[in-house]
Write a protein that binds this DNA or RNA. Sequence first.
DNA 1: CTTGACCCTCCAGTGACTGGAACCTTTATA
DNA 2: TATAAAGGTTCCAGTCACTGGAGGGTCAAG
Lengths: 127, 127
Amino acid sequence: MNISHAAKLSGLPKKTIRYYEDIGLVKATARTQAGYRDYDDRAVSNLTFVRRSRDFGFSIEECRELLALYSDRNRSSSDVKNLAQKRLTQIEDKQRELELLRVELSSLVTACNGDDRPDCPILNHLA
Amino acid sequence: MNISHAAKLSGLPKKTIRYYEDIGLVKATARTQAGYRDYDDRAVSNLTFVRRSRDFGFSIEECRELLALYSDRNRSSSDVKNLAQKRLTQIEDKQRELELLRVELSSLVTACNGDDRPDCPILNHLA
DNA sequence: CTTGACCCTCCAGTGACTGGAACCTTTATA
DNA sequence: TATAAAGGTTCCAGTCACTGGAGGGTCAAG
């Protein structure tokens, strides 16, 4: 299976797949005689795993750890749960931060007339 | 006023202030005989304005536009409002995205035993 | 046999800083 | 007055996670 096919199946851009190989996040595939990368189902499933993990917002380093756990038959689920819990806490922190921003910005937007005159509570607030 | 003082007053790191000058976001200050940057109140207030705008999540390019409007006596408040509304929409989009993620991840975290056995719904979901 | 669609590597750029080296100036102290 | 600490300067490199493009090789169809 060539890289385009693997890209389609995993949902990752070709460039990204090569990049992940470069940085050693996924291990290098076999090559055809012409030097083309050749993917099997296992490789594709690892790529898909990484894509999903990235979609959840795990960093590349965290994906590395998750992949290691994924392929470790003697893992403890607590290690996975810890990583996930850490990410969940990050998400919640970000949500709180965004909500504060949203409330403040939305009240400024509401207060601004948005006409052709220069008076502007938004600028006043930033100044 | 030297850069350390300006940094303290504006709430920006010194490095960042130099960087903003480098990219032309704020204009270069006067220099002392020794070549040290020399800030006045006006310069500090522009730096503070940029910091606040960045805190709201406006990009550097948006800060550039906001600064231009800030110092334009003939501005229309509608231009400012448009920028702020755009940013507000971004924030709301991000909030929705994070909420989807949170719900999914939190249900996975709850479902995972987090013990020393390998069974893990989180990994199953990523696979 | 040529065309177009693949594939490859390698280098550079993104955004918004941040760290560090190498060097100069000012200020406080012995 | 000598010196050391604490400031300032520039410039280059690194961060994160890709992404774009140049320049070149390979392969299947018409």
